[in-house]
C-alpha cells in the first residue's frame, strides 16, 4: 500500500511538472503580448518596453521559466498584471463564491440526478421513464448559457422574483438572517442553471448502470430468493453500481473549484471561472499560470482520491 501510494505521488508530481511547463509555454506561444492588450494611440513603443520591463517579460525565457518554477514551489504566483494584486490572494478571495455556487449546484445535481436515475431505472419503459429520459436528453442538449439566459429572462424579468446579478444586494441588508436570505436568493438562478443543464447526465448515468445491473444474473438470483423489490434495488443493484458513480463523483469534483466560466459571467459572480476568463483574454500571465496551477492540483488530487475511494467502495479492487 505504501509503495502504491508513493508511486502514485510520484506520478502526480511528474504530471504536475508537465502541466506547469506546458502552462508556461502555451501562453507565451499565444499571439501578442500582455502589453498589446493596452490599446491606445498614445501608447508608444518606449512605453510598451517600459511595461514589459516592469512585468519581467524582457528577460530570456529560461530565466522567466526558472523564476516561474521557483515562485510555484513557494506558492507565490506573483502579482496580476491587470490588478497588481497577488494572484494567490485573488484566487483565495474568489474561492468561496465558486465553492458556494458550484458546491451547492453539484450537491443538488448529484443527489437529484442519482435519485431520478434510480426512480426511472426501477420503472424502465414506463411513462415516467419516457418523460424523464426525454427531458434529460432535451436539457442536456441545450447549451448551458442558453438555459441561464432563459431563466434570467423568465424569473428575472417576466416573473420578477429573483436577482439577476451578483451574490448579494448592493448594499446588502443588515442583520445575519436577512443577509443569508439575500445570499440564497441570489444563488437561485445560477444554481438552477447549472442543475438544469447537468442533472440529466447524472440521471442517465445512474439509470443506465442500474438497468444493466438489474438484468444481471445475481439480481435474478436475489429476486428468486424472494427478496423485496426495494431490497434488490438498493441492497444489490445500487450497491453494485456505486463504484463507477463514486468515481464519476470524484472526477467531477474539481469542477467545483475550476468554476463555471459561463454561469459566473452571465450572473456577474466573482468566482474563479470568471477570473480565468478575464486573465486569459488579457494575457495576464501570472494570473493564468496561478489559476491553472490551482486547477491542475485540484484535478490531480481528486484523481488520487478517486483511486483510493474506488478501492474502498469496491472490495474486489486490489492494490498490486
Amino acid at each position: 500500500m505504501r509503495t502504491y501510494f508513493l508511486r502514485r505521488l510520484f506520478v502526480l508530481l511528474g504530471s504536475l511538472f508537465v502541466i506547469v511547463t506546458v502552462n508556461f509555454v502555451l501562453f507565451r506561444l499565444m499571439p501578442g503580448s500582455p502589453v498589446d492588450t493596452v490599446i491606445s494611440p498614445d501608447f508608444t513603443p518606449e512605453m510598451k518596453a517600459l511595461l514589459m520591463e516592469r512585468y519581467g517579460l524582457n528577460e530570456p525565457y529560461y530565466i522567466q521559466y526558472g523564476l516561474y518554477l521557483k515562485n510555484l514551489i513557494s506558492l507565490n504566483f506573483g502579482r496580476s498584471f491587470q490588478t497588481r494584486l497577488p494572484v494567490w490572494d485573488e484566487l483565495l478571495s474568489r474561492l468561496p463564491n465558486t465553492l458556494l455556487l458550484l458546491g451547492s449546484s453539484f450537491l443538488i445535481m448529484v443527489v437529484t440526478g442519482v435519485a431520478l436515475g434510480i426512480f426511472v431505472a426501477s420503472r424502465r419503459g414506463s411513462r415516467w421513464d419516457t418523460v424523464l429520459t426525454g427531458s434529460a436528453v432535451f436539457f442536456g442538449a441545450m447549451p448551458g448559457f442558453f438555459i441561464a439566459l432563459l431563466l434570467l429572462l423568465v424569473f428575472g424579468y417576466y416573473i420578477d422574483v429573483f436577482p439577476v446579478h451578483g451574490t448579494m444586494s448592493a448594499p446588502p441588508p443588515t442583520g445575519f438572517w436577512p443577509r443569508v436570505y439575500d445570499r440564497l436568493l441570489h444563488l437561485v438562478l445560477p444554481v438552477a442553471s447549472i442543475v438544469v443543464s447537468g442533472v440529466g447526465s447524472w440521471m442517465m448515468y445512474t439509470r443506465n448502470h442500474l438497468v444493466t445491473t438489474l438484468a444481471a444474473d445475481f439480481i435474478r438470483t436475489a429476486q428468486a430468493k424472494g427478496l423485496s423489490k426495494r431490497r434488490v434495488l438498493y441492497g444489490h443493484a445500487l450497491r453494485s453500481s456505486l463504484p463507477p458513480l463514486v468515481t464519476l463523483f470524484f472526477l467531477s469534483l474539481p469542477n467545483i473549484i475550476t468554476g463555471a466560466v459561463v454561469i459566473e459571467s452571465i450572473f456577474s459572480i466573482q468566482g474563479i471561472g470568471r477570473y480565468l476568463l478575464q486573465a486569459t483574454l488579457r494575457q495576464d500571465y501570472p494570473a493564468i499560470e496561478g489559476a491553472f496551477f490551482f486547477i491542475a492540483v485540484a484535478v490531480l488530487l481528486c484523481n488520487l482520491l478517486a483511486d483510493f475511494v474506488y478501492r474502498l467502495v469496491d472490495p474486489r479492487i486490489e492494490v498490486r
Partner: peptide, 19 residues
Amino acid sequence: IMPIITDSEARYLALLRGE
C-alpha cells in the same frame, strides 16, 4: 452606488427592473 454587472443581458434587465 455602482453595481458591477458583467453580462449584457443582466445589464439590460437591471435597467428595466430599476436596479
